[in-house]
């Protein structure tokens, strides 16, 4: 190891490590500490008011009906919206990858367009599309005889409406990843299947699906992890309503932390969400696998960048 190169290496990583350490690692550890205190608006004004309360915030959370409502709503969004979104992405990628598909670059661009747009702005647009009386959606559904639905005003339909918006907004991102996975399948495998006399469906079952499995796991994990962090859609469209039907865990954290200044309690909410994400997605295992050399590597760029 040459000293000059080693020194240069340290000089070059120092700013990034300092920034990540100061503005990410320290706050994460501080959040854990914060979750064991009763940090509230009084402590914000005068730190002497701060008390260490042990696990009281976590106990309170277990008995907070709003937390359970938020968790139920978020789970609905994750486990209904997530699979639907992955299915739409896979369908779009397979269709785009079909040999008979034309104008592929055009369609690809169109599908990715919602991904790069500002969530707040498109949520505002969808709010008007969902309008019960003058909204375009009810008007179009009326053509096929569907009676008007109060999408965002009816507790039964508010979360499905947010799921539809989220799928529209995000599916293009996973479509690109699936397309890359499809194009990475060696053509000789399709050739071999053809020589063996396999039909389209058999080829899909025997070649495409197994070869796509690693991509599928990657997409599923990143999508579920991202969907657990639902926030801006209900913030802009419903403010968690009607009747808490779209209150999400991050929205609850935001309200508790930055509206009521219950920072200790909000930190506990954030950590419980973190634990749930890790438990359900095995994200840590995935990260470790990708950290190992010569393994598929992951570019984690959440659409909307964890808005």
């Amino acid at each position: 190891m040459l000293p000059e190169r080693s020194r240069a290496g340290w000089v070059l990583v120092a700013p990034a490590l300092a920034a990540i350490g100061l503005f990410f690692a320290v706050p994460v550890l501080a959040a854990l500490a914060l979750s064991f205190t009763d940090f509230d608006i009084y402590a914000l004004a005068d730190l002497d008011r701060l008390r260490v309360v042990g696990l009281a915030n976590y106990q309170r959370l277990l008995h907070d009906p709003r937390f359970w409502i938020a968790l139920r709503n978020t789970s609905y969004f994750v486990f209904v919206g997530g699979p639907l979104s992955v299915a739409v992405s896979l369908g779009a990628a397979l269709t785009l990858d079909a040999r008979t598909a034309r104008w592929k670059p055009f369609f690809r661009t169109v599908f990715v367009l919602p991904v790069v747009t500002t969530l707040v702005a498109v949520a505002v647009v969808w709010r008007y599309l969902y309008h019960p009386r003058v909204g375009l959606l009810n008007h179009v559904l009326g053509w096929v005889g569907v009676p008007p639905v109060d999408w965002l005003g009816d507790p039964r339909f508010a979360m499905p409406a947010i799921i539809v918006l989220a799928i529209w907004k995000n599916f293009g991102f996973n479509t690109l990843i699936f397309l890359a996975g499809l194009q990475a399948i060696p053509p000789r495998l399709f050739e071999a299947a053809r020589l063996d006399g396999a039909g389209a469906w058999q080829t899909f079952r025997a070649v495409t699906l197994p070869m796509l499995a690693p991509t599928f796991v990657l997409v599923a994990v990143l999508t579920l992890a991202g969907y657990f962090q639902l926030f801006a859609e209900p913030y802009v469209m419903t403010q968690g309503g009607p009747g808490s039907s779209t209150l999400s865990v991050v929205l609850l954290m935001y309200e508790q932390g930055f509206r009521w200044w219950n920072l200790g309690y909000a930190a506990a909410v954030a950590f419980v969400l973190f634990a749930i994400i890790v438990a359900f997605t095995g994200l840590d295992r995935l990260a470790r696998r990708f950290a190992a050399p010569r393994q598929p590597a992951v570019a984690q760029h959440g659409p909307g960048e964890r808005s």
């Binding site: 690692a25 706050p27 994460v28 992890a225 954030a270």
Partner: peptide
């Protein structure tokens, strides 16, 4: 560039990707 602890530090950074940004936000 080779520098001491490079691989270890990089693995820690990748592991940190798991932590959602909201956790660090309050502090």
């Amino acid at each position: 560039l080779p520098f001491a602890g490079k691989e270890r530090i990089f693995q820690v950074l990748l592991a940190a990707l798991v932590i959602p940004a909201q956790v660090s936000m309050l502090p």
